[in-house]
Nucleic acid binder design. Structure first.
Lengths: 181, 181
DNA sequence: GTCTATACATCGATAGAC
DNA sequence: GTCTATCGATGTATAGAC
């Protein structure tokens, strides 16, 4: 996986995969039918790992409580995840970059990672009477979309230097828009 | 460019580039030093084209007027652009997917396309006294980020079917959040 | 300037020994 | 199960004729 994350699908050779794994190429081919199958298996495994992270049992009760607090913690969690875990950006590059040629890999990611997160947030937003939201589902997309775009621009596309912006301003602005004063 | 957009950098062969261009491979190499140089030249040209689209002279006065109207039109324009122009998704896949190995290509895109758009919107938002925005720059990021994420999820990653959402709901929600009732 | 032909490396995948 | 050795195809890039 580390080879695919670093080089993308096409630029990753099975020689390097085997070398990095510490086995011979024939051994790799005894476990996986071909390069595409290996890639699919690795990506799906990583996607399931991300899925378990999003649905961390410890955070099962995270989306309960006072809106400003809950939304602030969720935003920090997503941004910290993206900032610390360098895999996050590489995985984003891979899944977006290969989504045209491997739509069967992008689909489970949307279904198992993006959808559960959006659904959980939408349910929480809908459960807060004080928010008075006309469309919680769309509001959840505004929230997550703003955060993902921030990570995309600052870290994935390297806008950190040329287009500086503190993440705190994004979070504060987002919460002030959603939670009435 | 059509080959790079369809296959990505690594999976595009210079044979196919030459064939699609209707010339021989040697001719291509007489105009460009190597594959990477050709790719860089093509992407920068396309980025400049997108730049001119964003800064369409006809729309020079677009960001003036009543907020609900202006923001609604801007959102529709971005979403329509992404929906009709199939190049939009392919270009997004390419620029994101190759941003790790070609950071020198992502940087001009951020500088010449994303930044002007965000700046223009932030200036407009700041110029509207009735909006009373504490942080127009961050608010511009919320607006554009929500739209780009929508396109990313629905079209680039193919969530159109598995995660349906009408664009109108996004636009309406976004505007209701930013523009006071 | 553009072509054909080719050099040289590396690719994915497999055969056969152990 | 894992290895070494290798196949045929394809990759980038260039040489030399026109």
């Amino acid at each position: 996986m580390q080879e695919f994350l670093a080089n993308g699908y096409a630029a990753t050779s099975m020689d390097r995969v085997a070398a990095t794994a510490g086995v011979s190429k024939a051994t790799v081919y005894s476990h996986f039918q071909d390069k595409a199958s290996l890639f699919a298996a690795l990506v799906q495994e990583l996607a399931e790992e991300k899925f378990r992270t999003v649905f961390d049992p410890r955070d099962h009760n995270a989306l309960k409580g006072e809106p400003r607090q809950v939304l602030s913690e969720l935003a920090e969690k997503v941004l910290d995840d993206a900032a610390q875990d360098s895999q996050f950006c590489e995985f984003m590059r891979l899944i977006v970059g290969e989504s045209g040629r491997f739509p069967e890999l992008a689909a489970p990611y949307v279904q198992n990672v993006a959808k559960p997160l959006l659904d959980a947030l939408a349910r929480y937003l809908a459960s807060c009477p004080e928010l008075q939201l006309a469309d919680p589902e769309a509001t959840a997309r505004v929230f997550i979309g703003t955060l993902i775009y921030f990570v995309l621009l600052q870290r994935v596309l390297g806008g950190k230097d040329s287009l500086p912006m503190e993440s705190d301003r994004i979070v504060t602005t987002l919460i002030d828009l959603i939670v009435p004063a």
